[in-house]
Simulated assay, not measured.
Amino acid sequence: MTQVANHVQSGSGVPAAARRRRKKLTFDKVSFMAVFLGLPLVIYLVFVISPFVQAVYYSMTSWSGFDNNMPFIGFDNYVKLFNDDIFMISVRNSIILAIFLPVITVILSLILATLVTIGGSSRGQIKGLKGAGFYRIVSFFPYVIPAVVIGIIWAQIYDPSSGLLNGLLAGLGFDGFKDFPWLGDPRTAMVASMVVIVWGFVGFYMILFIAAIKGIPAETFEAARIDGAGRFRTAITITIPLIRDNIQTAYVYMGILALDAFVYMSVLNSTGGPDNTTLVMAQKLFTTAFSKSQFGLACAMGVVLAVITLIFSALVFLVNRLTGGSKDVSN
């Protein structure tokens, strides 16, 4: 009884959480919260949230962009957008890019990363293909080239009369491609443009996946080898599940880039391609704002693009969660 009384008198019977709540904030805690929580939050509000809120307001005006006159027109710009056939074509093209570009880029990057990390000899130490370091440098090289330069290079490669691609195909006996307009034909313009973007980014995501695979203990791959798992089975059942978060991140970033793709599409086809087959939302937004001086309408396009981007990101996280992405597979 004496021990119980002393225990109660000392206050040790009070829950630990309640005792922590009674503690006064010290200067160290306040300064830490201000620097590492408050300051980033203020920066985020000022440079991210505030511009977006302004864009939403501007999208409900008929602002020309070059004066202070901003007549409020409500949702008229949005009604106009969804009745604009060309804008809807640009939305469709952007969604097509968001569907196919991340899939193609991530799959190719995973294949290359697997080959240069665990795709080597099936005997001895787990290692990649011979000359893996050289493959990494060559694959990553396109990423360091500015997007404008990449677009110009590939525009020359696709040139119907003097392009390298048609020259090679004609040299191999495919005479039908002698003067084929890859960027000028509605059947191939979008595919040819996607090839350029994939070429520019596959090396970067390959390096990202290499770093993730290097973080997997070598004993895990050794155990799989002892169990008789081949390279393909090892990649599907071990590598991909263990780097799933990295794949999700890469998919989201690549999807966001695909929904923009302004630089690549503008350099390859500044007018939107034949029958607007390569016109994306960012191109339509730029033309509306700076060629037609309709900044209010352009802001509405930007809001629609932002909403589609958020929906895309949310769907990626949702699908990843529904397919078991939140489970711990490390064991």
Rank of each mutant, 00 (worst) to 15 (best):
residue 236 I to R: 15
residue 284 K to Y: 14
residue 269 N to T: 13
residue 271 T to V: 14
residue 286 F to Q: 10
residue 286 F to A: 11
residue 268 L to N: 02
residue 252 V to R: 06
residue 267 V to N: 05
residue 237 T to A: 15
residue 305 L to C: 01
residue 294 Q to A: 11
residue 290 F to D: 00
residue 261 A to G: 08
residue 278 T to D: 01
residue 260 D to S: 12
residue 261 A to K: 10
residue 233 R to W: 13
residue 252 V to D: 12
residue 269 N to H: 04
residue 284 K to T: 03
residue 254 M to E: 12
residue 303 V to W: 03
residue 271 T to E: 12
residue 281 M to G: 00
residue 239 T to D: 05
residue 265 M to R: 07
residue 276 N to W: 08
residue 304 V to S: 01
residue 234 T to H: 12
residue 289 A to Q: 07
residue 298 A to T: 01
residue 243 I to H: 07
residue 254 M to S: 13
residue 260 D to A: 06
residue 301 M to Q: 12
residue 266 S to T: 15
residue 274 P to S: 07
residue 234 T to A: 13
residue 240 I to C: 07
residue 276 N to F: 14
residue 254 M to L: 14
residue 302 G to E: 02
residue 264 Y to N: 13
residue 309 T to M: 12
residue 298 A to D: 01
residue 277 T to K: 13
residue 295 F to C: 06
residue 259 L to C: 08
residue 262 F to I: 06
residue 293 S to M: 13
residue 307 V to H: 01
residue 260 D to H: 06
residue 293 S to T: 12
residue 262 F to E: 07
residue 281 M to D: 02
residue 244 R to T: 14
residue 276 N to C: 09
residue 253 Y to L: 15
residue 275 D to A: 15
residue 266 S to Y: 14
residue 248 Q to N: 15
residue 242 L to Y: 06
residue 278 T to L: 05
residue 306 A to M: 02
residue 308 I to E: 02
residue 252 V to G: 04
residue 306 A to E: 00
residue 247 I to S: 05
residue 255 G to D: 03
residue 270 S to G: 10
residue 238 I to H: 04
residue 243 I to L: 05
residue 289 A to C: 09
residue 280 V to I: 08
residue 301 M to L: 08
residue 288 T to V: 10
residue 247 I to G: 05
residue 290 F to Y: 13
residue 302 G to A: 11
residue 278 T to E: 00
residue 298 A to F: 01
residue 248 Q to W: 05
residue 286 F to P: 04
residue 300 A to E: 09
